[in-house]
Design a protein around this nucleic acid. Structure first.
Lengths: 393, 393
DNA sequence: CTAAGTTTGTTTAATGAATTTACAAAGTCG
DNA sequence: CGACTTTGTAAATTCATTAAACAAACTTAG
C-alpha cells in the first residue's frame, strides 16, 4: 500500500525542508527561509516555532539589516543530541561520537581478535558504551548508532554475509538494539564511506547526487549514491564492483569468477606484485608507501601500474553509472601522488567523451574516517526521518 | 527549490494513486479502492467522481455482491486518448498508435535512407501524421508521442549523440513538438525497451522494480530500471554497459577503449566469427538463425559461444546493479534456444550466490516491439504526470 | 416473506496545514 | 524627521482529508 497524502504528510515534508535548510544554511533568517523554500513567511514562522520548541533550532540574535528591520538569525543546534559511529574492521573497531552536525566529540579505537561472533559483538558494545559514557548532556541524548561492516546486510540490519569476518546471518542490529535500547543502522563499509564523503564538509562529495565511492583495501568495495541516496539493489547487494570482470580469462577469484577487477587493483594485488621485486620483509603497505616517498623507482612503478589497473575499472563504473564524482578511498588513497597520473591517463584514453565531460575523480577527503563518519551520518539521518522529531515535535 | 507540501500536492498524490489502482485492477469498486489504497471511502468517492468527470474512468454497472449491496464497478477508460510510439532505427522507422492501455490500434513501418537529419525527421513526422490520421475520435485525442532513438539524449529531448545515425546535438523533441503541437518524449532505444518490458502485459518484467534490459543489435545497448524508474545517470548517459571492458587488453573498440563487451557478444561479433566458418553469402543474421534451426552444428556452436560471452557481461551487470530481472532483447533474442544454456552455465559459475538467488534472466516477451511500446508508455506516463489530468481534472 | 445483518457509497461536520491579507515592529536612508 | 523596506506575527480563508452517521441495496436465516 503506497503512502497516501494527508495533512500530516504535508507538514512532515515542509518541516523537514525547513530543518534541512537551517542545517545547511545556518545562520539564516525566517524571511530568507521563506524565499529559499517557497513557503510563505507565516508557514515558515510556525514551523520554526515548533523546531525551536523541540530544541533543534536556536535564535542567536539579530543579523545585518538589508535596508529594513534586522532579521533574527536561526542556528541549527547541533548539540541537541549525539550519535555513535562504528567502523567494524576485520581486526579493529574504530568508534566516534559526533554531535548532530557530525562534529567529532569523542573517539575510541581498539583491536579485536575475531575470536567469535559473540566476542566481536561484545567488543563493539563495549566500544559504544565507552563513547556513550563520555557524551555530554543533551536534549535528545544518543539519537542513534551507525555501524559500517565489511560485508552485506539487509534492511533489518542482519549481516547476511561478511567473508573476511567469517560471518553469516548475524542479526547485528537487533542484538545491539536490544542490549542498548538505541536505534541502530547497519550498512556496508563502502556504502557508509560514500555517505561520509557526501555529507561532511571535509569530504570531497558534498552536494554530489551521483557519486561512486571506491574503497581500496585487501579487496575493492564500492558505495553508490544515486539521486542523493544510497543505491542498494533489489536485495541489498549492489555495487560489488570489485568483482566486475576486466579479464574474462584472467586469474581465478574466490567469488567463483575470474579476472575480477580487485585481483588487479587492490592492496593484495599490489603486495603480490611487490613480492616479485622486493625482499619479503619490506612487503607491506606502510613500507611500500615509505619507499615510494623516498623515491624508490621500482616501488613507484608498482603504484603507477596499480593506478592504470584502477583506471580500467573506473571506466567501467563511468559507463555503467555515469556519476558526477568518483571518490577513491582506503589506505591506498595515500598513494595519490603516484597513482593519479597513470589513472587519469588510462581513464581519458578508454572512456567516451560524454560521460567524462562532467566527471570528477578525487581521492578521499576524510581518509580513514569516511566509513565511521558515514555510519554516524546514517544514524543521524534515521533520527531525523523518524516521525518523532519531524512532526510530533 | 525542493517541492513543498500543500493541499494541491496531497490531492495530486491521492488522485494518482487511485487512478493507478483503477488502471491496474480494473474492474474495481470504490469500496475496494478504499481498502487497497488506505484512503477513506469518502475520499475515494470524491476522487473517483472527478476521474469520471474527466473521462478517464467509467462506471460499468453492478458487480457481484459479497453479502450486501452490490458494488458499482469502475473501469479505466483506455480509449479516452491515444499515444504514438516511434522506434527510430538506423534504416527503419517503426511506429504504433496505442490507446491509453497500451493496446496497439494502428501500426506503420517504413524504411529510411538516412540521407540527412532533415530527411529523417521528415520521415518520422510523416510516420506520426499517418498514425494520427488513423486515430479514432476521443476525449483527449493524441496525448503524446514517444520516440526511441539509437543514441543518447538529454532531458530537453535533444539527441546529444547517435553514432549509427551520424547525429550530434539534434533538437528532436523541440522540432517535432513545434511541427505537431503535441508533447514529445525522447529516450534511448534500450531505455524505452526496458520500460516496454516492464509496463506491458506481454512483457516479461511486469512489476519488476529493478530490471536491466539488454538489447543486442550491432552493438549492445542497455536500459536500467531502478526502484521502478528509469535510471539515467548524472548526465543522461548511464547504462553504456556494452562498453564495459571484459578483456582489458582485448580488441580495440571505436569508443576508445579495448575489450568492450559488445565486441564479443553482439550481432557484429557473431557475424565476424561466422565469416571464418561460412561462405560470405550466408553471413547475415537471418541466414544464421535459419541454419541453426536446421541443425547446423557449426552455426549452433557460434550461438553457444555468443551465449557464453553474453554470460560474462551479465555477471558484471549482476555485480553492479543486483537486479531482480535481466531481459534480453533485440533480434538475437530469437536465438534463445541455443544461447540460454551456455549463458546460464557461465552465469552460474561466475556469479556470487547472493545476488543470483533472486535473479531471473528472460528473453524479451515483446520481441521487436519492446522499444516502440516502451516509447508509447513513456508518452502516456508523461501525460498522466502532467497536472492537467491529475489535479485540475 | 419478513426481519436482521452486511456492504456500498454519499453526506455532513470537524480537523488542521497552508495561504492570503493585513499589520506592527524595527530598521535604513536621504 | 519622514518615507520607504524588511521582518515577523496575527487573523481570516481555503480546501482536502478524516470520522461519523446514514440511506440504499442486497443476502440470508428462520
Amino acid at each position: 500500500m503506497k503512502q497516501t497524502g494527508d495533512l500530516n504528510l504535508v507538514k512532515k515534508i515542509n518541516k523537514s525542508i525547513v530543518l534541512d535548510r537551517i542545517r545547511h544554511d545556518s545562520p539564516v533568517s525566517r524571511a530568507r527561509l521563506a524565499e529559499l523554500t517557497g513557503l510563505t513567511k507565516a508557514t515558515v514562522s510556525s514551523l520554526v516555532g515548533e523546531l525551536i520548541e523541540s530544541g533543534l533550532v536556536d535564535e542567536i540574535g539579530a543579523g545585518e539589516s538589508s535596508g529594513g528591520r534586522k532579521p533574527v538569525m536561526l542556528l541549527f543546534n547541533g548539540t541537541a543530541g549525539y550519535a555513535v559511529g562504528i567502523d567494524l574492521g576485520v581486526d579493529y573497531i574504530l568508534g566516534v561520537l559526533t554531535d548532530l552536525n557530525g562534529v567529532i566529540v569523542e573517539q575510541h579505537t581498539m583491536k579485536h581478535s575475531n575470536a567469535s561472533v559473540d566476542a566481536v559483538i561484545g567488543d563493539v558494545i563495549h566500544s559504544i558504551r565507552e563513547l556513550i559514557g563520555r557524551a555530554p548532556q543533551s536534549t535528545y541524548g544518543i539519537v542513534g548508532i551507525g555501524i559500517g561492516i565489511p560485508g552485506i546486510s539487509d534492511e533489518q540490519g542482519n549481516v547476511l554475509f561478511a567473508p573476511n569476518l567469517g560471518w553469516e546471518n548475524v542479526p547485528l542490529q537487533q542484538r545491539i538494539e536490544s542490549e542498548l535500547g538505541i536505534p541502530v543502522v547497519i550498512d556496508n563499509e563502502a556504502n557508509a564511506g560514500a555517505v561520509g564523503e557526501q555529507q561532511f564538509d571535509a569530504g570531497v562529495g558534498q552536494n554530489a547526487s551521483y557519486l561512486v565511492y571506491v574503497s581500496i583495501g585487501s579487496g575493492i568495495g564500492t558505495g553508490i549514491i544515486i539521486r542523493g541516496e544510497l543505491f542498494r539493489g533489489s536485495s541489498g547487494f549492489s555495487g560489488e564492483l570489485g568483482h566486475v570482470t576486466i579479464e574474462q580469462n584472467g586469474k581465478p577469484c574466490r567469488c567463483g569468477s575470474s579476472g575480477c577487477w580487485e585481483l588487479y587493483a587492490s592492496e593484495s594485488a599490489l603486495l603480490e606484485k611487490a613480492r616479485a621485486v622486493l625482499p619479503e620483509d619490506d612487503v607491506d603497505i606502510e613500507a611500500l608507501l615509505r619507499r615510494a616517498g623516498d623515491g624508490d623507482k621500482r616501488v613507484i612503478e608498482l603504484f603507477e601500474q596499480l593506478g592504470r589497473s584502477l583506471g580500467v575499472g573506473l571506466v567501467n563504473i563511468i559507463n555503467a553509472f555515469n556519476p558526477e564524482l568518483i571518490v577513491i578511498g582506503g589506505r591506498l588513497a595515500e598513494a595519490e601522488s603516484w597513482m593519479l597520473g597513470p589513472l587519469t591517463e588510462v581513464m581519458e584514453r578508454r572512456s567516451m567523451p560524454f560521460p567524462r565531460a562532467k566527471l570528477r575523480v578525487q581521492f578521499s577527503g576524510l581518509g580513514m574516517k569516511s566509513t565511521v563518519l558515514g555510519a554516524c551520518s546514517l544514524a543521524i539521518a534515521k533520527f531525523f526521518a523518524s516521525t518523532k522529531v519531524s512532526v510530533e515535535g
